[in-house]
Design a protein around this nucleic acid. Structure first.
Lengths: 136, 136
DNA sequence: CATCATAATGCAACTCAGTTGCAATGTCAA
DNA sequence: TTGACATTGCAACTGAGTTGCATTATGATG
């Protein structure tokens, strides 16, 4: 392609870090923090500086390839943004993470809220915390 | 009393910091971060060390007087835990915070999830981000 | 293939929220 | 009033995340 694909951001370069990070996030389909991501990369023999990781993640997020997720533990987590929109079931004991779909539920809620409160909702954060099958 | 009352939770002592912090949280009914809380206290002429604030908040939370809220900006926020269970409408522009009640909605959702996924939900985090009436 | 602008990387130093150890102070029951 | 012990303040620390800058790598162009 030529000049199109303008995008406010420059075309990302094909680097080792870029490829490896995307691959890890696509395979391990869970929200990963920087340290987790870094050790996953190391396991694959790819050593990447944490600054690079944060910068890559910022870029990937901007381009919509990745979504930021917050588990309320003060760490930024990122997950691949391929599948459907979903939420997480975070086991507070073993830290495992499962996914749930809430088809239409939140959309309905948000519409109702927008009407009543006249607040334009652009995003939401919804995560569930508790005990998974193995831990309860 | 003597040796009993072993507890994990001692009766909180009536201190200046304790009183002042509770009062600020009760009056300014919004989730406040440590720095915000601290300056609110200063405005009332109460100078409290940040360590003390964090420790008081931890205690208040343990006793259920206060709830921790996460807006995903890497800061712990706490709000008074009197009123009804509610969620927040956070304006990403002017940072104002409004409240919404979602009567029964989440309870229903959580029950359905528990059944399908066999995950025991103990807590959830749900906040909405967008533009308030003035900013949109 | 060689060149070169510029994007990506690594490193060190930094910021900022939150925590910890410890000595000093305050609270409150006896 | 006393004394046990909870609370406070301070300084030093931790850990996540960011920034400036010099170095390296990418990929478009000739």
């Amino acid at each position: 392609m030529t000049a199109l694909m303008n995008r406010s951001a420059t075309a990302p370069k094909e680097t080792k870090a870029h490829r490896a990070i995307l691959r890890v996030l696509e395979e391990d389909h869970a929200p990963l923090a920087e340290t987790e991501l870094r050790s996953r990369l190391l396991q694959r023999g790819v050593r990447v500086n944490k600054t690079t990781i944060y910068r890559q993640l910022a870029g990937l997020k901007e381009r919509g390839a990745v979504k930021e997720v917050d588990f309320g533990d003060g760490k930024k987590r990122f997950e691949s943004n391929d599948g459907e929109h979903h939420h997480h079931l975070v086991c507070t004991k073993c830290k495992s993470v499962d996914e749930v779909q809430l088809p239409g539920e939140l959309v309905r809620l948000e519409k109702a809220i927008s009407k009543n409160k006249k607040f334009k909702i652009l995003d939401h954060a919804l995560e569930f915390f508790g005990l998974c099958v193995n831990c309860k």
